[in-house]
Nucleic acid binder design. Structure first.
Lengths: 224, 224
DNA sequence: CGACAATTTGAATCAGATCAAGGCCCGTGG
DNA sequence: CCACGGGCCTTGATCTGATTCAAATTGTCG
């Protein structure tokens, strides 16, 4: 999951699910805190998340970290480059995964339809990442946090009566490393949104969006 | 071209060229300043740059702009998402392009080999963009500019006697919008590098890297 | 309950943005 | 050939949003 807020994308943000499970492998599971793969590992499988949340990270020598993406249901992780994984990937909560052999990507003739769906997932990833550049390069802290919550609410929010409950299984530091901020700034920004009545912080890992429109406005540079 | 400085990537940075020209279309040309496609256009072709430089940009409502990538020889531009282009793309200088039909991507059976090469280009793009995230999210201004020059020197620098001449066909504002900075900051950073003897600014569109090692060190957080 | 980790809050600092000139380059036209 | 004009680019001064450093607080789990 990247923070993409294309104004023309009114699909609600749900990632399309690949229609047909791979014939080769049964759905698998990974426990919270365990790693699915590490940077440098040879790629043998791609995975589509069916339930739970993954975290993909990349480390710089000096300890600086970037959370590249979170993997929510519908997302595909593990696209290879030079045959290798380029991020670490672990599970934030217990997560279920549908594996697809890498060879499906490389040998289209084996299953043209599934190959096409994986390819579409890769192309969608490119587009989403382009949007995310805009955020990292050009948005303020409150715009970033608001964008993040908006996208999350659209993807996995439980909405009724005009409010929208969103779980945040990741730590504040993960959000910060995803948005290019510090934990303190993320925390302050959330506090400010709470004080202005846009969100309610039920507990550290669960917030409620009270004013979705105000949040969207904030995410696009409005005063809130 | 993204700013990717994987420590383990010692290929020198040259993007691999797709081996075989498409049977369907002859190499084409676009003049400096002209647009190859616009955001929202339906994708009919992908293009591999064979000479020249492209610029891919994305605009936010309020005028903020992000340069998504520059297209240097070897790079492939135009990957579709939902059938559409998601950036504007124009030429910074006269540029030659090898077009590939979009259908090559979608119908692997038409030419398995070319399809595979386009797919590899897409996967490489994902990996390169992940590296670029690190830069936009976690690097300082001087690290960004140094990284940019280092990558450019590796890709298209004319090196001899330990120095490396690099053309900068884009304006300072393009570099700024690519790196998530302002033109003033880019300019100041270059001036500082000049004063510390790391680069020479021959003219606005041409710099010489006098101390490549120092530049690399700067790009990774060294004091320079 | 107690201890440690994560989060929040506060104060001070700083990197980069913003605002404002000034200089350079280059094409145009007298 | 040179004066003029308009983009860029550079430089300077100031401002500010976010980071940094430092507690205080809350939450978690044995």
């Amino acid at each position: 999951m990247y923070v993409t807020l294309s104004t023309d994308d009114q699909t609600g943000g749900a990632a399309p699910s690949i229609s047909r499970p791979c014939v080769c492998a049964r759905e698998t599971q990974i426990r919270a805190g365990n790693y699915l793969f590490y940077e440098g590992d040879e790629v043998s499988w791609l995975y589509q998340v069916t339930a739970g949340v993954l975290r993909q990270t990349r480390l710089l020598e000096n300890g600086r970290r970037q959370v590249i993406a979170f993997g929510y249901p519908g997302d595909v992780v593990g696209f290879p480059a030079n045959g290798c994984h380029h991020t670490d990937c672990d599970a934030l909560v217990d997560t279920r995964l549908q594996p697809y052999r890498k060879s499906l990507l490389e040998h289209p003739e084996k299953d043209v339809e599934l190959h096409g769906e994986l390819l579409q997932a890769a192309l969608g990833e490119i587009s989403a990442m382009q949007d995310h550049f805009m955020m990292l390069g050009r948005k303020s802290a409150s715009e970033r946090v608001a964008s993040f919550l908006t996208v999350l609410a659209g993807r996995v929010g439980r909405c009724h009566d005009g409010v929208c409950k969103v779980d945040l299984p990741m730590r504040r530091a993960d959000i910060a490393d995803f948005l290019g901020l510090t934990t303190e700034t993320v925390s302050r920004t959330l506090t400010q949104m709470r004080k202005s009545g846009i969100i309610k912080i039920e507990n550290i890992h669960s917030i409620v969006v009270l004013k979705p429109a105000a949040l969207t406005s904030l995410s696009q540079g409005g005063k809130g």
